[in-house]
Design a protein around this nucleic acid. Structure first.
Length: 453
RNA sequence: GGUAACGUGGCGGAAUGGUUACGCAGAGGAUUGCAAAUCCUUGUAUCCCGGUUCGAUUCCGGGCGUUACCUCCA
């Protein structure tokens, strides 16, 4: 489609026309997981949001013209703590969690990014970047620690619209003995023997939290790229610090031209947090819901808004997909989604607006031709919905059932016998029994069929 | 306290300087032994107070409310 893509840019705070630096090589970096615990639905949101943005970008610029990099941070204090807590090796923990993460991505039907670099495989790049920052007087070493000197970077706070003086004047943050100012942040820190560490000019140690993204985005996307994405919580300090490191090391005006942040998921309007005990892991939904249900649920709110997670939301999403799967028809050959229907996605990834259009395409498809059904299905497929076969969708539901198919068929037989004898009381009783077990009966024409509620 | 985002019907949730999408739930109808499914029809909303304007839910100001962020170090 010729239409421009619009994106809300956290840098500046306005919705802008998206123009890539090079239309033949559109570059997006999204902050991936720190692999210390099972991914939760808060992690699921950026996965789906940026998966859709990836698809939209490919739609406009061509499949092979879009690079999508999502890092895996596999060295961090939280990982060290997590391994200790679970009493397993760090290696085992990160391997486990990376597997979980990949399973969750599959479950949510997210495409693989172009590159998924791991922090531990890029330590030399980080050391190199830290060296440059020290040389340029943007960083200093003290007692085997290296800190970034925030006062050396005049644009610090620009992304998150924070005034550095005000931010740290409150004296809420204690000044560490090792660093000059409270706002400075660590680039490198020493590791104890049992902790993971790498040799460096400042002794055996490990990188600070932010430097891995600066090093890896540079490696795969260069000094300046088009889009940097992640959750709202990363805006400060993580992205602010990334900008400081990268721009000082690379001496350029922008790290990324666009900064895109997705909002939070809340539970009963409270932020998910461990202390509240209200964290939902993605794998907790494996048995009860097809991943498509979560995907549609995550699309039902615009990515910038906070979204409240609820069982009701999932029930509605499931119901909608049930309806949509009835109308699924695999497109034969190339089918185009009408521009006017695609429009909302180009306008700042407006997924609710797009869903609305899918509903309209559905209305048309139900009454219309095979072609209409193919257009409807294509529109769903575009955002990763209705991609599995109808039988697979139904199989998933059957697997959640506690009653065997044999028993169901026998009950249907009994009921129809009762109906033939006009014993409607018994017939209704059987129907309600099955309904209690989640089996819904439909009398259509002369045939009785059943399905999972 | 500082900063930012948000406030739309019963619920979820878009859009918009002038008839306020879409879904769920509700109501009425067709159909049905009753249901289910499907189809048709349908009611209901822009937090409060000012300002700009012929006209504000939309723009501006104030208020109220909700939420988030305020690191690393510890």
């Amino acid at each position: 489609m010729d239409k421009d893509i619009y994106l809300s840019n956290s840098l500046g705070g306005n919705k802008e026309i998206f123009k890539p630096i090079d239309a033949k090589k559109v570059r997006m970096y999204v902050c991936g997981p720190t692999v210390y615990d099972d991914p939760h639905i808060g992690n699921a949101r950026p996965l789906v949001v940026f998966d859709i943005l990836f698809k939209v970008l490919k739609c406009k610029y061509g499949k092979s013209s879009v690079l999508y990099v999502r890092n895996i941070t596999d060295v961090d204090d939280k990982i060290i703590e997590g391994a200790k807590l679970k009493n397993i090796s760090i290696d085992k923990l990160t391997t486990n969690i990376i597997k979980r993460f990949n399973d969750d991505c599959d479950y949510l039907n997210c495409e693989k990014p172009t590159f998924e670099p791991k922090a531990t495989e890029n330590i030399p790049l980080m050391i190199n970047m830290i060296n440059i920052l020290i040389q340029k007087n943007n960083a200093y070493e003290n007692k085997s620690h290296v800190y970034f000197d925030v006062s050396s970077f005049k644009d610090y706070g620009k992304l998150s619209k924070k005034n550095v003086d005000e931010l740290f004047a409150g004296a809420r943050v204690e000044i560490s003995e090792n660093k000059k100012r409270s706002e400075d942040f660590v680039l490198w820190k020493p590791s104890k023997n049992e902790e993971p560490g790498w040799d460096s000019p400042w002794g055996r140690g490990r990188p600070g939290w932010h430097i891995e993204c600066s090093a890896m985005s540079k490696k795969y996307l260069g000094d300046t790229f088009d889009i940097h994405g992640g959750g709202r919580d990363l805006l400060f300090p993580h992205h602010e610090n990334e900008i400081a490191q990268s721009r000082c090391a690379n001496e350029n005006k922008h790290l990324s031209n666009f900064w895109v942040h997705n909002g939070f998921i809340t539970i009963s309007n409270e932020k998910m947090s461990k202390s509240q005990g209200n964290i939902f892991k993605i794998k907790d939904f494996y048995k009860k819901y097809n991943g498509q249900v979560l995907r549609l649920a995550l699309m039902s709110t615009h990515y910038k808004q906070a979204m409240d997670w609820s069982e009701d939301l999932l029930i509605q999403s499931k119901k909608t997909l049930d309806k949509w799967y009835e109308c699924q028809k695999k497109p034969e050959g190339k089918v185009l989604i009408p521009d006017e229907d695609l429009n909302p996605l180009y306008d700042d990834i407006n997924t609710p607006g797009y869903i609305s259009n899918i509903h309209k395409l559905y209305d048309k498809a139900v009454k219309g031709s095979d072609k209409d059904k193919e257009i409807f299905t294509t529109a769903c497929n575009f955002v990763g919905l209705l991609t599995e076969s109808k039988s697979k969708w139904n199989d998933f539901k059957n697997n959640t059932l506690e009653i065997s198919e044999e028993v169901i068929l026998q009950k249907l037989k009994d009921r129809n016998t009762a109906r033939d004898n006009k014993n409607y009381e018994l017939a209704d009783k059987i129907r309600n029994e099955l309904l209690d077990k989640g089996v819904l009966i439909e009398d259509k024409d002369d045939k009785t069929t059943w399905k999972i509620k």
